[in-house]
Simulated assay, not measured.
Amino acid sequence: MKVSRLAQDITLKELSLGYPGKVLMANLNAVLPAGKISVILGGSGCGKSTLLRHILGLNVPVSGEIFLGETNLTKLKDEDELRLIRTRMGVLFQDGAMLGSLTLGENVALPLQEHTELPDVIIEEVVNMKLRMVGLGEFTHYFPNQLSGGMRKRAGLARAMVMDPTTLLCDEPSSGLDPITAADLDQLILKLKETFNVTTVVVTHDLDSLFNIADHVVVLHQGRCLYQGDLDGLRDSDDEYLIDFLERRPTIIDNSMARSVKFRSRL
């Protein structure tokens, strides 16, 4: 099986996903364009991270299909073929997912050691190059607990890119970061897209990141795709949920507080 080294569209066709006894998303149709940054938005628990797991092949859809270019990922039954596809996918997990017993360099080297037969000297050279790329060239021998949250996220990006993937999946990359560090990470994701022409999918709640990096937006809500398109179309939408989401409008009224206010008004 040949795996393309060029960025490719990710196409979701009539995709329903979830877990036994619970469907989170039904009949989802979307195209995440090649070489662009697609941002997946939606409320907590709507299925954003679950969608990433399905693209990776870690979960099997309830129904429907997922294509990477011309390859139907949902039809791949051979574990070796799926494994080969995954070598062209880089993943940045929410917390960086660094192994605490290994140094930064050892963490980043793991995919190369697992999936290639490169000699140690070449692996070390590649690891150092990727760590320099994310501004961590001087921290190769540090352990994860010696680094800040932002540095661990950047290290996670270095590991995600160490195999030169054509697809990069990022799950809440800016969560838990201060605004400046989050902005730095946004710029790094933009730089990776421009330098490596990688198809990037970012799950986030960070509206600042959305407007900084998104070429394409998919909004999931109540088990369906509520919107997909560019930022201008998202800003111009008259959908009530989208307006509430983008303007951070509260939708829940604390009834006990409301009763207290009414009681006080009668005094």
Rank of each mutant, 00 (worst) to 15 (best):
H54N: 11
L56Y: 06
L76V: 15
G64Q: 12
K75A: 14
S63W: 00
G45S: 08
K77M: 11
S49L: 08
I85Q: 15
L56M: 15
I55N: 01
E70M: 07
T87D: 00
I40R: 05
G47Q: 12
H54K: 01
D80Q: 12
E70P: 04
L58V: 05
L82Y: 05
R83L: 14
I40T: 07
N72R: 15
S44Q: 03
S49A: 09
S49Q: 08
H54C: 02
G64H: 11
L68S: 13
K48T: 01
L56V: 08
K48Q: 03
I85S: 05
S44K: 01
S44E: 01
G45W: 10
L52P: 03
L51P: 04
R83S: 15
K77D: 14
P61N: 12
V60C: 00
T74Q: 11
L56C: 12
I66H: 04
L32N: 03
G42E: 00
I37A: 06
T74Y: 10
L41D: 06
L58M: 14
G47R: 11
L82E: 01
E81F: 00
L32H: 02
V60K: 14
T71M: 12
G45I: 09
T87L: 00
L32W: 04
S38A: 11
V31D: 01
R83F: 06
G47W: 09
L73Y: 09
L84P: 00
L52S: 07
R53C: 03
V31W: 02
E70G: 05
L68C: 10
E65H: 15
P61H: 13
G64M: 11
K75V: 00
R86A: 10
L68E: 10
V60G: 00
P61D: 10
R83G: 08
S49W: 09
E79N: 10
A34H: 01
S44G: 02
R83E: 14
S44R: 01
E79C: 03
I40A: 04
F67E: 03
G47H: 10
I40S: 06
T50H: 11
C46T: 14
E65N: 14
F67Q: 04
T87M: 03
V60Q: 11
E79P: 10
R86Q: 11
A34K: 09
K36D: 08
S63Q: 13
E65M: 11
V62L: 04
L68W: 15
V62R: 12
T87A: 01
G43L: 07
E70N: 14
S38R: 03
L56K: 09
S44N: 06
L73W: 08
P61S: 12
K77C: 06
E81T: 09
C46Q: 07
R53N: 15
K36P: 05
L51F: 02
G64N: 12
V60L: 03
P33T: 05
G64V: 13
I85M: 15
K75I: 00
I66M: 03
C46Y: 03
P61I: 12
E65K: 15
I85K: 13
P61C: 12
